[in-house]
Amino acid sequence: MKKVEIYDPAMCCSTGVCGPSVDPELTRVASALYSLEKKGFNITRYQLTNNPDKFVENDAVNSVLHEEGIDALPVVLVDGQIVKLGCYPTNDELAEWFNVDLEELKEKPKVRLSIDLNSL
């Protein structure tokens, strides 16, 4: 099974729905990765803000940062090899890497909200 690691730039969240405006690219990636993770695929995301140690520990990512700076983020690795710099994988690429149908990556996360009316 393929292992995908994404080294994100510094940001407040990986979903793209925080801050003053929604980033549709981050929303697309978060949704696609959610669908893949739900199916049990091996995907890990590291944020420079929350996981700076992971950027230092990975020699390839550390080298990219030293040579090209933070503008090279995100860095995407498949099975330990860098496959993308400065942009996220497309849904087509994710579908190919994990051998899934493209439509499977469009499933939206479902949020359940429960309200106890007796506590109001």
Rank of each mutant, 00 (worst) to 15 (best):
M1L: 11
K2S: 10
I6R: 01
D8K: 06
A10V: 14
M11E: 11
C12L: 08
C12Q: 07
C13V: 04
S14I: 14
T15F: 09
T15E: 12
T15R: 05
G16D: 03
G16C: 06
E25H: 11
E25I: 12
T27F: 10
S31K: 02
A32N: 01
L36R: 10
E37G: 13
E37R: 15
E37N: 12
G40S: 14
F41R: 06
I43Q: 03
Y46R: 04
Q47P: 01
Q47L: 08
L48I: 02
L48R: 14
T49D: 12
N51C: 09
P52W: 15
P52K: 13
K54P: 02
V56I: 13
E57F: 01
E57Y: 01
N58Y: 11
D59M: 02
D59F: 05
A60F: 10
N62L: 04
S63T: 13
V64Y: 00
H66Q: 14
H66D: 14
E67L: 11
E68H: 00
I70G: 00
D71W: 08
A72K: 04
L73Q: 07
L73P: 02
L73F: 09
P74S: 07
P74R: 01
V75C: 02
V76W: 11
I82N: 04
K84T: 03
L85G: 02
C87I: 02
P89R: 02
P89I: 10
N91W: 05
D92Y: 05
A95L: 09
E96P: 00
W97K: 03
N99T: 06
V100F: 04
L102Q: 03
E103T: 14
E103W: 06
E103F: 01
P109D: 10
K110T: 04
L113R: 07
L113D: 06
S114Q: 08
S114M: 06
I115K: 12
I115L: 04
D116S: 12
D116W: 00
L117N: 00
N118H: 14
S119Q: 13
